[in-house]
Design a protein around this nucleic acid. Sequence first.
DNA 1: CACCATGTTCCTTG
DNA 2: CCAAGGAACATGGT
Length: 278
Amino acid sequence: MPEMPEVEILARHLRPLLRGKTIRGVRVCRERVTRPTPPRELERRLTGARFKNLSRRGKYLLFEFQSKRSRETFSALGHLGMAGRMFVALKKEKLPRHTAVVFDLGGRNLVYEDLRYFGRMTLDLSPIDALGPEASELSPTGFFRALKRSGQAIKVKLLDQSLIAGVGNIYASEALFRARISPKLAANRLTKEQAARLLAATREVLNEAIKFGSTVPLKTMSGKSDALFYYHNDGEGYYEKRLRVYDRAGKPCLKCGTQIRQIVQGARSTYYCPKCQR
DNA sequence: CACCATGTTCCTTG
DNA sequence: CCAAGGAACATGGT
């Protein structure tokens, strides 16, 4: 589910549901997701605290709390890894098989489930410091200068969270297609014009995904809770349909008809049109 | 059984 | 010290 747009949608969805709610209890079901914070410490710290705000930075969720007694504020960091989800559900509902952490909000639970447990819910905020700017805050000049310092293929470089925070494997391919730039081009060989075009394309792709995601009805996960199932893919193909190259190997380019090609870069799949992206 | 998957981190190599 | 490449993490789908 989670590249920047999905996390942004999730933050917008959860924010009004959580604000002001007091956490009655926390249960860490899968201990590795709190690393490096000890699970019991997370439980102890969050129990009795109140949600003040929820924001997003890159692909991270930043939960702000007010502690019960001291009125001091502190934060926790969430990350959905490859297959994480968060949703609010009625307490009587059955928890998913791969529930990682449950927050007791009274009549409801905030559930963090993670099929592969690659994600996190932790008190360690340090990953935030390693992030580069949001796509919306980076200047074309700054982007170009950063690219000049790397000989890596531009597709691989786009996934570097210290360059732009939030770009993942799907939108990296999509942005390069939109900018008509080959994923194999070395970062330091993009012209100033290409860099500007790529940054603009990246912003557009991310913003359009947020806009689109906002229109997708949040699917109920089980029964009649307000569970978030944004990444859901039913017959309509809500999710895939709007992607132009990702996961379309062998299918015709929507602009020129050439077969979309799939290659491996940095151990991850890249999709591109060999004709449009010279 | 083999291979692939929206991400990050750690280890090795050069 | 840094850049780059690859494995590891854990589970499920095809």
